[in-house]
Nucleic acid binder design. Sequence first.
DNA 1: GCGTAAACTTACTTACTAGTAAGTATTGAA
DNA 2: TTCAATACTTACTAGTAAGTAAGTTTACGC
Lengths: 190, 190
Amino acid sequence: MVRLTHTKIRILDRARELLQQRGFNGFSYNDISSSLGVKNAAVHYHYSSKGDLGLALVSYFREFLHDRTTHFMTHGGSATDQLEGFFEFTMNECSENSDLCPLGALATDFDSLPDTMKAETKLLMQETHHWLTRVLEVGLAQEEFQFLGDPSAKSLAILAEMQGLRQLKRISKQPLLRISIDQLRAELMR
Amino acid sequence: MVRLTHTKIRILDRARELLQQRGFNGFSYNDISSSLGVKNAAVHYHYSSKGDLGLALVSYFREFLHDRTTHFMTHGGSATDQLEGFFEFTMNECSENSDLCPLGALATDFDSLPDTMKAETKLLMQETHHWLTRVLEVGLAQEEFQFLGDPSAKSLAILAEMQGLRQLKRISKQPLLRISIDQLRAELMR
DNA sequence: GCGTAAACTTACTTACTAGTAAGTATTGAA
DNA sequence: TTCAATACTTACTAGTAAGTAAGTTTACGC
């Protein structure tokens, strides 16, 4: 018999893929189970309701963000490195299979999400916003960046632009991100 | 007996509301019929399939865009007026009930849309992009605007930012749009 | 080898989805 | 006055959604 113990991890990863491809209301327990070769009830065994699964998903995104940014947030570092890392990550995730930004995928279905998921999604957004704001603040202080307005507003604008571009890319099927990131870099960097 | 002849129009308008609130896969024929006080089959009478309804919806958005921009596209005019009209419309639509941008609402569910809807959505995006690009071109030539990069890339960035902001606003429940539009204006206008 | 817990499957339920077939009321034209 | 089209309703279908109860297999500690 082959090992099955990592089923929970596989479920979460498949759910993540499906979320970023179809939105939270766009996939079912059956979509997950059939592609993993297990039964519907196996998914319910690990995540008793779809709300539980969704909550675990958003928590995963929060942890991922935390892991990637915690060193910068506690010890500082180059703002350019952080921003370039963000751009690179976004472009990789987007080019592979046109995955949506998690926040973008959750936003459309936001009204129908259970309250626990809403709260967790709000935290994910706040933390993402907070991190990028900090990057811009540091970049401004270290004279790596230049921009008008305050860092909080500018970081939100950048996040919104990336999120929107990843969605528009699915409609137009063209590599919109490369050009827009180049332009953003040109505007931001001295 | 009260007049019912305008049922088709009411169906389309309610479907538009639901699309911008929940996405295309987030509402059912029953959601429409029950809130209009008619039966499920009445919706099917006017729009035989959900794909038909969706196609009519996207066509409606295209017509709306065309009506609002045709004078500028054929006779020219002030680029600032066009841009301010766009900002004002976006802010009104967004503040009323946190409606999503149509393209944003369609993007998440894009993969599952019927081909006819995909094609029509692509046209809506192209036409929106083409209009805003023209506005930026004219604004640049008339020295109303200033920005880096080419107008096509910049207009896409603006559209993506607006779309993303309207989504993020639902998560944070805060008036993000006003600040971001102010900032965009400050960057763009001389 | 025995008991127990973890990790499932089988087989089901209830609710809701898009969609349809057949019937009914209303309207306007010939 | 009849005919036919329009605009529906009633009553249904097949498919799929999330969720559950009860049984089965596997691994491990004792």
